[in-house]
Amino acid sequence: MSFEEISHTADIKIRARAPTLEALFSETFNAMMQIMYGTNRASEIVRKIRVESSDDESLIADFLSEVLFISEVESLVFSDASINLDGLCLTADLRGELFDPVRHSGGSEVKGISYSGLEIKHDANGYMLDIIFDV
C-alpha cells in the first residue's frame, strides 16, 4: 500500500496503490489527511460513517467529501480508517483526535475532490487510483 504526489500545476494530484479497493480508499484518505494536517495525528476518537454512491469513483469522492465536512465542523483530525465496502455502500470507522493548532495548522486546506482526472484502475497487481484535490 502506498501513495505518492504526482506533479500537478494548480492542485494536488495523488496516485495511490493497494491490493484491495478498501485499502485503496483507506490510503487515499490517509493522503488527504496528511496534506491537510501533517503526519503527527493520533487516534483517540472513533467516528463511524456510511456513504452510498452510484459508482466507485463517485463513492471515493463522496466518502472524502464527507470526511472533509466532518473534519471541519467537528474539528477532528483523523489518523486512519477501517473501511468496509458492500457493493457501492461504504461504512468506515475513522480514528482521530481533536484539531490541535500547534501540530495541525501547517497543512493545505482541501477545498474539494475533483472529478477531473479521477480514475480507478484494477489489474493483476491490484488497484490504482489517481485523484486531484483542489487546494
Binding site: S58, D62, L68, G112, I113, Y115
Partner: peptide, 29 residues
C-alpha cells in the same frame, strides 16, 4: 467551507441533471 460545500453538493445534483437533460460532457467536472 460554505462555498466548498455548495460546489460539492451541486456537482452531485448536476451530475444526475446532466444525464436527465441528455447533455454530453467530455469531463465529469
Amino acid at each position: 467551507g460554505l462555498g466548498h460545500q455548495v460546489c460539492t453538493d451541486h456537482l452531485k445534483a448536476l451530475e444526475s441533471a446532466t444525464r436527465k437533460y441528455q447533455i454530453a460532457i467530455p469531463d465529469r467536472q
